[in-house]
Structure formats: structure tokens, C-alpha cells
């Protein structure tokens, strides 16, 4: 069995998780506490990967970032290419996993009593200081849950990564694509081992989330 697809998947999941940890907190703060028409429009757009078929999402990412896409054409001027390479996978994963990051964090932020945030303001602290010292520490379980969800979701991603990254060995062939390839080649032994590894990661993530839930309830 080739270990490279797993290394790519782990690398992709870790970087996606780290980026969405920061980006997710920023977006969640905006969505959780702002009341405006922009929020009402933005929230469904951010959550759309939850209901969109991954191939549809992958297709649109290709359309935008591909060589003939609007962003792709612009990036061509700087000799940059964002499809069929690792960066394309990363952009696809970030967009696809964004709701898995934002959704639990928003729930965590909204569960914080309003008076805690107001107390910080009355004590002269800025919104940013309040976010760092009051909001994030009191939503830590939601944030950790979001990170675990993003990691486990990204590591098993198939549709979007296939559309945006293709199936280039050593470059964009991730673990889930490798399983598909093994089955195509009737190599059930390697498919089985790979599937078992992904299955174990998913189960460990779910058990971890369950433990977090219990800790939060205490």
C-alpha cells in the first residue's frame, strides 16, 4: 500500500484545520453577533457546502480558479495556478469544510450570556480584547469540536478534491481517491487497509467529540 496519499491527506487536513481555526473564529464572530442584511445573505452562502453535492462545488471552484476562470485568468499573469495542485486542493477543502468550522463556533458564541460580553465592555475593554479573553475561552469546547470536525471531514474528502485536484499521484491523490483507485484496480487488500485507517480516524474523532460534549456539560 502506498503511504503517500495518506501523507497528502494529513498535510491537507492539518493545514485546512489551522486556517479554518482562525478564519472560522473571525467569520463566526461576525455572523454570531452582527445583525444586518449582509449576515442574512452571507450565512446561507457559507453554509451551502452542507447541502451542495461536492461535485457541484468542485465544478464551480474549477470554473472560478481554473485557467479560463475569472480568478484563474488573473492569477495567470503572475504564473500562479490554483487547480490540479496542492493549493487547489487546499482552497477546495477550505471552502468545503468552512460550514463545519463555522457552525459549531457560532453555536458556542451565541451560547455565551450577553451580559458577560457587556461586562467586559463596561470594564473598558475593546471588542477584540473581549473576543480574546472572554468569548474564545468560554467557547473553547465549540472551537475544539470545530477543529476536530474540519480535520476528520477533510481527511475523507472525495468529490471536491477529485474535481479540483484531479488524481495526480504524489501531488493530489489523497487517501479517499486512492481507495477509489484501488477498487478500480480490484486491489481490495489495499482498499481495505486504507478504508480501515480512514474509518478509525473517523471513529476516534467521534469519540473525542463525545468526550468534549461531556466535559462541556460539567
Amino acid at each position: 500500500m502506498d503511504s503517500e496519499p495518506f501523507l497528502i491527506s494529513f498535510e491537507l487536513s492539518t493545514i485546512t484545520m489551522l486556517i479554518l481555526g482562525i478564519v472560522g473564529i473571525g467569520i463566526s464572530y461576525f455572523l454570531a453577533f452582527k445583525r444586518s442584511i449582509i449576515v442574512d445573505i452571507l450565512e446561507p452562502i457559507i453554509m451551502s457546502p452542507l447541502v451542495l453535492p461536492p461535485t457541484v462545488l468542485g465544478f464551480y471552484i474549477l470554473e472560478i480558479f481554473g485557467v479560463s476562470g475569472s480568478v484563474g485568468k488573473f492569477l495567470n499573469h503572475f504564473d500562479l495556478k490554483l487547480v490540479f495542485n496542492f493549493w487547489g486542493l487546499l482552497i477546495g477543502s477550505i471552502i468545503y469544510s468552512l460550514p463545519f468550522s463555522v457552525s459549531p463556533i457560532i453555536a458556542g458564541f451565541r451560547a455565551i450570556p450577553k451580559s458577560l460580553i457587556e461586562a467586559s465592555y463596561t470594564l473598558g475593554k475593546s471588542k477584540f480584547h473581549t473576543l480574546l479573553k472572554v468569548i474564545i475561552p468560554n467557547a473553547k469546547y465549540s472551537i475544539i469540536s470545530a477543529l476536530v470536525l474540519v480535520f476528520s471531514h477533510t481527511i475523507g474528502e472525495f468529490g471536491v478534491v477529485l474535481m479540483v485536484g484531479g488524481d495526480i499521484p504524489g501531488k493530489t491523490r489523497t487517501a479517499s481517491i486512492a481507495i477509489f483507485d484501488y477498487v478500480q484496480e480490484l486491489n481490495y487488500k489495499d482498499a481495505n487497509i486504507s478504508a480501515l485507517i480512514l474509518f478509525s480516524i473517523a471513529m476516534i474523532s467521534l469519540i473525542f467529540l463525545q468526550i468534549l460534549k461531556r466535559l462541556q456539560e460539567r
Binding site: 451580559s115 458577560l116 457587556e118 461586562a119 467586559s120 472572554v134 468560554n138
Partner: peptide
């Protein structure tokens, strides 16, 4: 200085 009804301790 504001003392909230629910205390609002962090």
C-alpha cells in the same frame, strides 16, 4: 462600573 443582575462573572 456595572453590577449586573446575573453578576456576569467570567
Amino acid at each position: 462600573g456595572f453590577v449586573f443582575q446575573d453578576f456576569a462573572l467570567f
